[in-house]
Computed example of a mutant assay.
Amino acid sequence: MADKVQFDLVSPERSLVSEAVDMVVVPGVDGDFGVLPQHSPMMTLLRPGVITTYEGDRPVKRIFVAGGFAEANPAGVIVLAEAADVVGEVTADQARQLLRNAEEDLSVAASAAEADRAKLEQAVAVAQARVEAMTAPA
């Protein structure tokens, strides 16, 4: 197990992943970072994007995260995601519909308070990132 990194991903709805892999690439707010066995301890916020797990040099699983928090340490990485979808479980059409819904919510909220508008704009940004994740080649 020393040559593997333990990867755990939890969203508010469910635990999505708990497995040992060779490497995990995570979308941090300051850029993507890879986690290998014996990684130095660190914590970071996540931006909307795709987490990719690897076996050897082969990507195995891609998971869209809407944001959240990650903690890496020598034993592995734990991701607490605001929302997460395994790429392939949500179709591109479903992702596009979520984007249309978010854009519509934003357009009808022209008179919304500034804080509410910021939440709606964030929802649109997350939906756009989800569409990109679900339509990008593997």
Rank of each mutant, 00 (worst) to 15 (best):
L9G: 12
E19Q: 07
V77R: 03
A72M: 07
G49F: 07
R14G: 00
V25S: 13
R62K: 10
A115N: 14
D22G: 14
G56E: 04
D105G: 14
P74W: 05
V10F: 10
P48V: 06
I63Y: 09
V126Y: 04
V131S: 10
R130E: 08
V5S: 11
V26K: 02
G56H: 07
A123E: 02
V50D: 01
A72G: 15
S11I: 02
P74V: 01
R130K: 15
A70C: 12
N73C: 09
A115H: 06
A138R: 05
V79Y: 06
S18W: 00
V5T: 15
S107L: 08
F64W: 03
Q38A: 12
I51H: 04
V50M: 03
L46Q: 03
F7M: 11
L80T: 14
A133W: 00
V10Q: 02
P12C: 02
D30G: 13
P12F: 01
S15Y: 00
R62H: 12
G34I: 00
R130Y: 04
A138N: 10
D3K: 10
D85E: 15
V65K: 02
A112M: 09
P12K: 06
V60T: 15
D3T: 14
V87K: 05
V77D: 09
V124E: 01
H39L: 00
V35H: 07
M23D: 03
D8K: 14
G31M: 06
M42C: 05
P48K: 03
L98V: 06
A84I: 07
P48L: 05
Q6T: 11
T91V: 04
E132P: 05
F33G: 13
D22A: 08
A127R: 03
E55M: 07
V65F: 07
L120Q: 04
V65D: 06
L106D: 05
V65N: 06
V77Y: 05
E103K: 07
R47A: 13
V126I: 14
V87R: 11
R58Y: 06
L9E: 05
A81G: 12
V25K: 07
P48D: 08
A81C: 13
V25Q: 11
R58A: 15
D8N: 10
E55W: 03
E89I: 05
G28L: 01
E89W: 04
G76L: 04
M134F: 01
R62S: 13
P41C: 03
P137H: 08
S11G: 14
R14D: 01
A66L: 00
P27V: 02
D3M: 14
A136R: 12
L106W: 07
G34P: 09
Q128M: 11
A110P: 06
A110Y: 09
M42S: 08
F7Y: 08
V25M: 02
D116F: 01
V21G: 03
H39Q: 11
T91G: 14
G67V: 01
L106M: 11
S11H: 13
Q97N: 13
E71Q: 14
F7K: 02
N73S: 12
G88H: 09
D8A: 07
V79A: 11
S18C: 00
V65W: 00
A84M: 02
K4A: 09
A136D: 13
L36Q: 11
A81T: 10
A115K: 09
V90M: 15
K4Q: 13
A20E: 14
V24F: 02
Q94G: 12
I63P: 05
V86C: 12
D116S: 10
G56R: 01
V21K: 01
